[in-house]
Design a protein around this nucleic acid. Structure first.
Lengths: 214, 214
DNA sequence: CTTTACATACCGACCGGTTGGTATGTATGA
DNA sequence: TCATACATACCAACCGGTCGGTATGTAAAG
């Protein structure tokens, strides 16, 4: 009988791992890659150092695992926004506001930190490589499944998404850098004009060819 | 007798300061903000710790001073490219290649590192604030003095530059992140189409209203 | 032209504190 | 009894920064 009585002592590996991953991303976002030390991470998670190194063979492995989850969350949010647009739940203007705000959120700060981090932390790089590739594909997939671009061939579509994502990335960067509130308004005006004038929202029913499953 | 025998000590303050600033930016670019320690910086510069702290009251002051120079170099390069376009020394296509390559260079990696760094290093932030503001103005100035945008009012122009710079920033970021070579080609195609189709290169003779002198 | 005095440039040992990682011990549950 | 989950104490390496002392340049005094 697996009666689930409330434990005093928490002895739950999965929970500890989840706490550690969440604490790692919080610490990364608030203190940067340079301030990403195991001490504060453990404190945040309410877990001892021993527990950390019991579940992860090194700090890099913890960081990589946490980052992977962050990327998944990120992609999930973008897909969700696209789905809402196709469902008609939000307008195009609202769509633009939401994707740019998502891009300019803490999630993306985390991505930037890691991206710069792996330039010098050679041990971390191979651990996150695959997650980043998957993430890129997933975002391209989001764009393709949200918009149709009549008359565009494959390379045109790739260029179109490259420009759209560059715009959002650049905005995200300057925005978490300390740009004024006008920056947002300008993106809300400029993005649809430059990027979406040739795009058509795919109808909800349309079945999309998935580029990568899962 | 003041014979100039081969000295152990060089004794040239300006030279030492310049060496330290250069070494700091090199170290920042190659090892990131997290790897920006005074030890390696001194080693690179061929100078002792004592000399460093003789000329700079803290590491943050050194970093700020170095960053300031990097931003000036950066802005100077952009202005130079704009001048070459107006002189007719380079084509529009060549112009696009050069500004996007400059944006995607090590100089910008340094900017990103510092930008993220000041999010958590509160001591550094006030030391670089002014330099960043000046840099922003200088780049906007570069854009305005290079292109005329017929029919655009002040806010339109600001939005236009915001989009152009966001595109370049986003490209720079993904490019130093590990994007493939197609990313460049796509920017070379997409940037003129989206951004420059409504812009006219100002003639060389035209006198430009300077937004900020120096 | 010397001698003396003093400011500046520089060196490298050293300090307290923090880092990622480990070795060891203990509570828990099957 | 025995593997697992976690805590604690500890380590060597490294961190930014300080300090006493030395080399060097300059300017006034003799």
């Amino acid at each position: 009988m697996k009666q689930k009585k409330p434990n005093q002592r928490v002895r739950d590996g999965e929970r500890t791992v989840a706490l550690l991953k969440r604490a790692t991303m919080e610490q990364l976002i608030s203190n940067g890659f340079a301030g990403l030390s195991v001490g504060p991470i453990c404190e945040r998670a309410g877990v001892s150092r021993g527990a950390l190194f019991h579940h992860f063979q090194s700090k890099d492995h913890l960081v990589a695992a946490s980052f992977e989850e962050l990327l998944k969350d990120f992609a999930k949010q973008m897909h969700e926004i696209g789905r809402n647009l196709r469902r008609g739940a939000i307008s195009i203007d609202e769509f633009v506001v939401r994707i740019s705000d998502t891009m300019a959120s803490d999630l993306f700060v985390g991505c930037m930190e890691i991206s710069l981090g792996i330039r010098s932390e050679f041990g971390l790089s191979p651990l996150v490589e695959k997650a980043i590739t998957d993430w890129r594909l997933s975002l391209f997939d989001f764009w393709n499944s949200t918009f149709d671009l009549p008359g565009f061939d494959a390379e045109d579509r790739a260029t179109h998404w490259a420009m759209a994502s560059n715009l959002l990335r650049g905005h995200a960067f300057s925005s978490s850098f300390g740009a004024g509130p006008q920056a947002k308004e300008r993106l809300y005006r400029g993005f649809p004009k430059l990027i979406l004038n040739c795009a058509v929202v795919r109808p909800e029913q349309e079945n999309i060819v998935q580029l990568n499953n899962k």
